[in-house]
Design a binder for these strands. Structure first.
Lengths: 229, 229
DNA sequence: GTTATATAACTAACTAGTGAGTTACACAAG
DNA sequence: CTTGTGTAACTCACTAGTTAGTTATATAAC
């Protein structure tokens, strides 16, 4: 239980003067750290916190197990680091969406498409979040600096809806938070529950064709919900 | 890895001549079996297949660990039994919905409300399904007799939509499978992701008040999607 | 006496975490 | 240049504790 915390993150950067860009490993040590994170992401996504094996992470990363404890302290702390990274990446991508220049309905459609395309491109995100929710979200809560990121998007959505109301394209009275949840839900559920749904319906829902059908459907659902008239 | 499979499920029912009602333990042995299933459901729901502890299931059930192996053969088989039970219960409840007597829009609203209320009343279902989906759905697939149950509801939904189209209340061209998925999604996601969403939004979404708001919202979303005009 | 049900004690394999030491390299003193 | 010192990065071998599954045995029912 006693964390050594040799604080390798504050390692002196003797040679490389320029600050490295996000997730670009410049030094060998950073590369090892990154490889561990990537291997851990896959392992935790596949098996959850309890099912993941530290030895397998080490093997997959081509690193010595001891280095995982050297860099991250414990299995749980490694898990938090993975969660933080994946979650932050998504929020950054979301923040980068240029919605404000578009007409309200188009802006929301773009958000819906993003909420479909992002998990499609990052399947680990889904299973990691599923696992985290099974654990009551306690590890994500542990992570600082995640609290502030989310709220801004709801504010942006609120503004977009207000514009739409004003120009008559959007039905009034839509709750931005619940709209955001619904937009997330209709795509997330599809990716998250494809395995059991495919079994239940006796039909593989993970094919590119089915995926495209679903994508059109979710845009359709949200459009009809927000459209005025 | 070698499953003993003592097939205790075919145990002779010497005393109780009448076929016992669903999940009502008549004999002591059936009671033990049921207690194990209930304890296992809670344990697997909370911690997933890998995180669950057989010893804890035994303790919680007030049964000897050996009896778990006697009745279910292995941890994995116990997990499948739990999954099967929970999933089947939901399908039975779903099949019991009397939708056919209602006007199409009301029928779909009733289905939406069911899809909200059922997971609200059975939180284990959500986490069990989440865990199962993380594992690729392989254990649910292992279970027979689940395949046929689902399809019927899609057929019923198809009929309802067709009636609605005919009487002009429902917009034509709605895919019943995707509608069903969307109806499931908007409620499921709320229950499934409450922990991380609450963290992200800095607002407890699990309160009765928030729940009621969400319930209204999901009915609203689906109504606007299917309504003609 | 055979079958179903039950218990406690046990084991083989696994698993997170550690102790102790090594390598590679930077920088400074002589 | 070479010797000494400091330290980040890394390896190997180990352990204390856990965990699914088992063995051996008991008892009640019929």
């Amino acid at each position: 239980m006693t964390a050594p915390t040799l604080s390798p993150r504050k390692a002196t950067r003797t040679k490389t003067a320029a600050a490295p860009a996000r997730e670009v490993a410049t030094r060998d040590a950073d590369k090892t750290r990154l490889k561990i994170l990537e291997a851990a992401e896959a392992e935790f996504a596949r098996k959850g916190l309890a099912g993941a094996r530290v030895d397998l992470v080490a093997e997959e990363a081509g690193a010595n197990k001891r280095m995982i404890y050297y860099y991250f302290g414990s299995k749980e702390d490694l898990y938090v680091a993975v969660l933080e990274r994946v979650y932050t990446d998504m929020r950054i991508a979301e923040a980068g969406l240029e919605l404000e220049d578009l007409p309200p309905l188009d802006a929301i459609t773009r958000l819906v498409e993003f909420k479909f395309d992002y998990p499609a491109a990052h399947p680990h995100l889904i299973t990691l979040l599923n696992g985290e929710n099974m654990l009551g979200g306690e590890y994500l809560r542990r992570s600082t600096r995640l609290r502030e990121m989310q709220i801004s998007l709801i504010e942006r959505l609120k503004t977009i809806l207000a514009h739409g109301e004003k120009d008559g394209t959007v039905r009034p009275g839509i709750d931005p938070l619940h709209l955001y949840m619904t937009i997330s839900a209709v795509s997330y559920f599809y990716f998250s529950n494809t395995p059991t749904l495919s079994t239940a319906f006796g039909r593989n829902l993970a094919t590119p064709k089915e995926r495209e059908i679903r994508r059109k459907h979710v845009v359709d659902v949200v459009s009809h919900y927000i459209k005025a008239g």
